Amino acid sequence: MLRFLLHYGIHILVPIGIALAFYPSQRIRAALILLAGFLLDVDHLWADPVFDPDRCSIGFHVLHSYIAIALYTALLFSKKLRIIGLACLVHMAADAVDCLFILNAA
């Protein structure tokens, strides 16, 4: 239960918190962009099985690869793309926390 709450808490509450704290004048737009980081999970559709609760997404799926994470980090250096990079990295952080639970269960 803690794993579920942390994973989806980071996916949902952290983007909303970032939008409120750092983009107060555009909080709705910022929150929607940050929440759109969920779209990175489209790469799960290419996996077999599509959902495996014991699989760490980081390093397994294309949009969760280390190269992709480096690209998301590079987006932080562009003022126009920063929020998209942040959305992607928040998503990676949520999935990384999930991976820690998987490693500790083994």
Rank of each mutant, 00 (worst) to 15 (best):
M1W: 13
M1I: 14
L2C: 01
R3C: 04
F4G: 00
L5V: 15
L5C: 14
L5Q: 10
L6H: 06
L6I: 12
L6R: 03
H7P: 02
G9H: 04
I10E: 07
I10L: 09
I10H: 08
H11K: 08
H11F: 10
L13C: 09
V14A: 05
V14L: 14
V14E: 02
P15A: 09
P15F: 10
P15C: 13
P15E: 07
P15W: 14
P15D: 08
I16V: 15
I16L: 13
G17I: 11
G17R: 07
A19C: 00
A19N: 03
L20P: 00
Y23N: 11
Y23I: 11
P24T: 03
S25C: 02
S25Y: 13
R27S: 10
R27Y: 10
R27I: 00
I28D: 03
I28S: 05
I28N: 05
R29F: 04
R29Q: 13
R29E: 07
A30I: 10
L34I: 11
A36L: 12
A36Y: 03
G37Q: 01
G37L: 03
F38A: 14
F38V: 02
F38Y: 12
F38N: 08
L39F: 10
L39N: 01
L40C: 07
V42W: 14
D43R: 04
D43S: 08
D43E: 06
D43P: 02
H44K: 13
H44G: 12
L45S: 09
L45W: 13
W46S: 14
A47G: 11
D48K: 15
P49E: 10
D52I: 00
D52A: 15
P53M: 04
P53G: 13
P53W: 12
D54G: 12
C56F: 10
C56A: 15
S57A: 12
S57T: 05
I58D: 06
G59M: 09
F60G: 09
H61Q: 12
H61D: 03
H61T: 00
H61P: 02
L63C: 08
L63A: 10
L63F: 14
H64R: 00
S65I: 02
S65V: 04
S65M: 04
I67L: 15
I67K: 09
I67M: 07
I67F: 14
A68M: 14
I69W: 05
A70R: 10
A70I: 07
L71D: 06
Y72W: 11
Y72N: 07
Y72T: 04
Y72I: 02
T73L: 15
T73D: 02
L75A: 06
L75V: 04
L76R: 06
L76A: 12
L76W: 02
S78R: 03
K79S: 06
K79N: 08
K79Q: 13
K79P: 00
L81M: 08
L81N: 01
L81V: 02
I83W: 07
I83H: 15
L86D: 05
L86C: 11
A87K: 02
C88G: 15
C88T: 03
C88L: 14
L89T: 06
L89Q: 07
V90W: 00
H91Y: 07
M92A: 11
A93G: 15
D95F: 09
A96I: 06
D98H: 14
D98L: 01
C99K: 05
L100E: 08
F101N: 02
I102C: 07
I102Q: 09
L103V: 12
N104V: 03
A105R: 14
A105S: 11
A106W: 04
A106V: 09
